[in-house]
Amino acid sequence: MSSLLSIRGLKVEFSTYGGTVQAVRGVDLEVHKGKTLAIVGESGCGKSVTVQSILGLIPSPPGRIVSGSALFNGTEMIGKPVNELNKIRGKHIGMIFQDPMTSLNPTMKVGDQIMETLLIHGRYSKSEARARAIKLLEDVHISEAKNRVDHYPFQFSGGMRQRVMIAMAIACEPELLIADEPTTALDVTIQSQILHLLRELQIKNKMGLVIITHDLGVVARMADNVAVMYAGQVVEHGTAEEVFYKSLHPYTLGLKQALPSPAMERSQLIPIEGAPPDLFSPPRGCGFYARCKQAMTICSDNNPREFYEGSHMGRCWLHHPQAKGVEV
């Protein structure tokens, strides 16, 4: 399968008054054409920073990409000059930002915001771009698109603003769409509409899709592949079925047990005690060590390497031949 985006050894730091935060500590990821990769993890685990750094969206300073590579269709994205990045961003790679309330320009009509992308990247005249903007609003199921195109963001509800963001992101039919928490601010019925829409677009354009979320329900619905991130690292990676049904990492297991099961029988919620580590001074060993119920002596001082079962990866010493396996 052809790889659309390939991230290798990405490390990102932020310098703050309190010291240096090692937000991303060596991440490898792969996105394939027409497939969906979901990146799961809790706030501060580095999932947003990872995708922002491949688009050159990390403000520098305070941010700094220490090392790593991100190949998009074979071209290196890290360190690319802004004028070259601008030819790719918005055209070949679309991005849906987390917060539709703040990511749209409140002083611009939504039609003009969609047209902006088209006029910069496409070979559209102004009137063609307007017609295309209306078509895009229709595609994202906004009724009366002809009138709506001249409205301002404040005249839209949250769900509709999110759909306007999607219309902007897909305006140039990107090969890769990155959606950072695309439905977190939305209600479940609207969330269903948006997820369905993304699926439709993906099938139509053979688009690669990266969804960043902490909602395992959304992951289950959308993902072909899942990467679980914790403390700036990918701790588990595999197909959705592998990660959900045969979890290799205690953190992934913990997440599942912390959610109420929709089965008839009510099982006790088992929280993951404690809190994620401070990334100002990341632990020498496994990032999950302090919260892990199955932690061993080796885990405190040695960050686990990647262990594989086929293509299913778990970064946990329990898979070392000398250790017992994770009991699911």
């Binding site: 329900g217 992951v219 289950a220 619905r221 959900f244």
Partner: peptide
Amino acid sequence: SNPEPDPIKE
């Protein structure tokens, strides 16, 4: 519409 953490079901 309520998404559940179960890929096969979803």
